[in-house]
Computed example of a mutant assay.
Amino acid sequence: MSKPFMRGVTYAQDMVRLYQFPRNAHIPNLSPFCLKLETFLRHAGIKHEAICSIENWKKGKEGKFPWIELNGQPYHDSDFIMQKLTNHFKLDHLEADLTDEQKGTTRAVMKMVEQSLFETALYNRLMENLETSLAVGRVKIPMKSLLMPFVKYFIHRKIHTRMEGVGLGRHTREEIYSIAKTDVKALSQLLGDKQFFFGDKPHNIDIIVWSVLAESYYMPWDNMIKGYVKDSKNLDGFMGRMKQHFWPDWEEITAKPKKNAQNKEDRGAS
């Protein structure tokens, strides 16, 4: 047994403890970065334990989710974590069949979806569907009718500041939606008539794209990105294939999110 980063916690050697946001009734995790990392763990067949509790949010070094603990050491940022796990568990074989061009495409697509597309989805979610988003996230606001205007003002101000920082804040609503539509179209063109982006089996690029699209696609209300994906029939089918491939227990997890706040999984590639 290793000495844990968090006191009172012990676990088996090479057991990854994944700290992330709570489960949700519509999707295993509302954060695309948490969803990406947990899906990667399933893809790699890494033995892990998902700790889905907001209590651990600030306990990580960067003060945000997701983060992991591996053999007593904490690691942060989903991209760095994936690289750490790839090195530690010697997972280079997962991408070994890709050409240098495909590996370069993976990097380029990751930046597009996790920066451009993610930010437009965040705009749609928190600037135009805030109350519904809060309800889906099970955020309880006492005296809602009195506090909601202040909550809206605070969140909208933070999102606007964030948008200014990444450049989107200088665009109109129509321009922001145009950026999202162009990004989704590019993904549809890249996927073409293939089952997955690089053929008949999933790779990291599929996990990255699916996780960002999932945060809009599986929401219980109509939104711009969900509509763009459904209009792109090949992407619509891709979303279903990824869910079926990596999350056969989706219905169980989302049906009882509180019960599944903590779960362990054995090593065994999907």
Rank of each mutant, 00 (worst) to 15 (best):
K3Y: 05
P4Q: 03
F5K: 03
G8S: 12
Q13P: 03
L18M: 06
P22T: 04
A25I: 10
A25G: 12
N29P: 04
S31E: 08
E38I: 07
E38K: 02
L41E: 05
R42N: 05
K47R: 08
H48I: 08
S53T: 04
I54Y: 02
N56F: 15
G60C: 12
E62Q: 10
G72T: 07
Q73H: 08
Y75L: 15
I81Y: 02
H88K: 07
F89K: 01
H93R: 02
L94N: 01
T106D: 11
K111V: 13
M112Q: 08
E114P: 06
A121Q: 12
A121I: 15
A121G: 14
M127V: 13
R138A: 10
R138G: 00
M143E: 10
P149Q: 07
F150W: 01
F150H: 01
I155L: 15
K158T: 06
H160V: 05
T161K: 10
M163T: 04
G169E: 10
R170I: 00
R170L: 14
T172Q: 05
T172W: 07
A180Y: 06
L191K: 02
F196P: 00
F197L: 12
F197G: 00
G199F: 05
D200W: 06
D200L: 08
K201R: 04
D206W: 07
L213W: 05
Y218T: 01
Y218R: 00
Y218S: 02
K226F: 12
K226V: 06
F238Y: 15
W247L: 13
E251F: 07
T254N: 05
P257A: 13
G268H: 05
S270A: 13
